[in-house]
């Protein structure tokens, strides 16, 4: 499995750090840093989702809902009650994690298709609530006037927001990789492999599953808050089932068993949907379907799995 070394993380961090400066000098891609903000926001979700799905083996199609709950919590607390955005973000994350614990308790007893459908149903119900409870959420028209973020009186413009988002993504990445490489992460992988054996070895299986579920939901919520404060307006369609499945595409494309894959997948799919698939307009769904199918059939380990695939091929060759 994955053993992270410090250098790749450092190098990628530097690339991300200098990317806006480089992009500013190349007219064709000078708007890429804006897109990268969204990529960073999605990466925060997919890292958690990768821990949940790739490592612990628990499928969720409902994380769009947690993303939405975070976004709406921030929006509602700040614009309707005038609370501090950072406090709202924190409260939203805690609230979402609590909801995840309540939902996850019974849901995570289910396996495979049942769990997929239960999380999907949860996602759709939350989406319907976003649309119907117009008194809070503004209904299908959405909400406007969500304040931006500022640190010590400095308002975060797009450029600074880029560093905020990717800074958080880096912390989340490190925290999650640490988990994977420790006894807690081993317990999660054990659950993926054999729940019975994990239990017999003293792993509190239901407890671990719920903690991971709540953690990944909390990250999705955090990402939702970041999205809300960056966009300054919200619309329920951002949080529909399609987005939940887009998250699935991100982690499958990147490689479901690799945390790196979650980041790669988030970046690529974000660029696909904001930039490269513009040509296809609304046919993008067809393209996503094809990508997803191609990966499952030809590249089940995703892009991050390619090095290992090549290595294995060389090992097998002589």
């Amino acid at each position: 499995m994955l053993r992270y070394r410090k250098y790749p993380v450092l190098i990628v961090s530097l690339i991300i750090a200098f990317f806006p400066w480089v992009a500013a000098h190349v007219p064709a891609i000078d708007h890429y840093p804006d897109i990268m903000i969204f990529a960073g926001i999605y990466a925060i979700i997919t890292i958690g989702l990768s821990l949940l799905m790739g490592y612990t083996g628990q499928i969720s199609l409902g994380h769009a809902a947690f993303y939405g709950i975070g976004a709406y919590a921030s929006a509602i607390f700040t614009s309707r009650y005038g609370w501090n955005p950072w406090l709202s973000m924190l409260l939203g994350t805690v609230l979402t994690s609590l909801i995840a614990i309540v939902v996850g308790g019974p849901a995570l007893k289910l396996k495979g298709h049942y769990l997929a459908m239960a999380t999907l149903a949860f996602g759709i119900i939350v989406f319907i609530i976003f649309n119907e409870e117009a008194g809070f959420t503004g209904g299908p028209d959405g909400m406007t006037g969500i304040p931006g973020l500022s640190i010590f009186g400095f308002k975060l413009n797009a450029e600074r927001y880029y560093y905020l988002v990717w800074g958080i993504a880096l912390l989340v990445f490190l925290f999650t990789t640490n988990i994977i490489q420790s006894s807690a992460g081993r317990a999660l992988r054990a659950i993926h492999s054999s729940e019975a054996a994990a239990m017999a070895m003293g792993v509190n299986v239901p407890g671990c599953k719920i903690v991971v579920f709540a953690y990944s939901a909390g990250l999705a919520s955090l990402a939702g808050s970041l999205y809300a404060h960056y966009m300054n307006f919200l619309n329920p369609s951002t949080f529909d089932i399609f987005f939940g499945i887009k998250l699935l595409i991100m982690i499958s494309l990147g490689g479901i068993h690799y945390i790196w894959g979650a980041v790669i997948g988030a970046v690529i799919v974000t660029f696909l949907s904001y930039e490269w698939l513009h040509y296809f307009e609304e046919l993008e769904i067809l393209v996503y379907g094809l990508i997803l199918l191609m990966i499952t059939v030809f590249l089940p380990q995703g892009l991050a799995g390619i090095p290992e695939m090549i290595k294995n091929r060389f090992k097998a060759a002589p």
Binding site: K111, H113, I245, L248, E284, L286, V287, L290
Partner: peptide, 24 residues
């Protein structure tokens, strides 16, 4: 064509097909 069918891969594959059919 899926070589190692696990529940998750099969779910993803049928979702992919649903996207393709919807897009078409």
């Amino acid at each position: 064509p899926i070589r190692q069918p696990s529940v998750v891969t099969l779910i993803i594959a049928t979702i992919a097909v649903s996207f393709i059919l919807r897009g078409a």
